[in-house]
Nucleic acid binder design. Sequence first.
DNA 1: AATCATCATCGTAATATTGCAATATTACGA
DNA 2: TCGTAATATTGCAATATTACGATGATGATT
Lengths: 104, 104
Amino acid sequence: MGTTKTDIHSIDTIEVAQVAKVLAHPARVAILKYISEQEGCICNDITEEVGLSQATVSQHLQVIRDAGLIQGNVKGKSVCYCLSKSNFDQFSVVMDQFFKGLLK
Amino acid sequence: MGTTKTDIHSIDTIEVAQVAKVLAHPARVAILKYISEQEGCICNDITEEVGLSQATVSQHLQVIRDAGLIQGNVKGKSVCYCLSKSNFDQFSVVMDQFFKGLLK
DNA sequence: AATCATCATCGTAATATTGCAATATTACGA
DNA sequence: TCGTAATATTGCAATATTACGATGATGATT
């Protein structure tokens, strides 16, 4: 136990849950907001902005990256993160359709 | 550790994360879908529909109820759950604004 | 080369979540 | 009142998540 049962549910259902899971932590929401505000990217500053240790921020960044919401471009010693808008847009659609589906 | 730091983030950020957290489990997404499909309500059937034990479903229902997304009306020995559309609509707005804010 | 800055990863402690069996609880019908 | 059906709650085991210090890896600076 402790493991989420996934084989029970439809693809659609799982997709909504996966999208939501990425946004289910305030640090990840804050990181996404910050990255998008900086238009381009920036990186180490996230640690300062968010108020968590570098290791923790890096972990959250990995979750967001694995979900395909951001891209990291290496620039010398620093890494520039920026939104992958198309994927983010898809996330938006998934959630939107879920809400609309239930509210119709 | 293991605890999410919340005092660091803005109200808006925390709100998005809280909404997302409710939807971050496929069982809860499935339950919400099922309840809304049944227009009115129904209840014990959820257990069968979702494929988890009664205890587990009841737990998930509590999470959804605590978030204010559903209401349970007692009808004899069974409980009829139905969406509280206004709250659900608010959830929808929170997420929508988050996505729109980042994509603009 | 030696050092520093930036980031990722590893290891680990603390806590949260998931899932279920067992056990209440509540309401109804016999 | 007894039995039963429908839910909720409790207690627990398994696993996941969160957070951070320490350690690597890599490129820049001296």
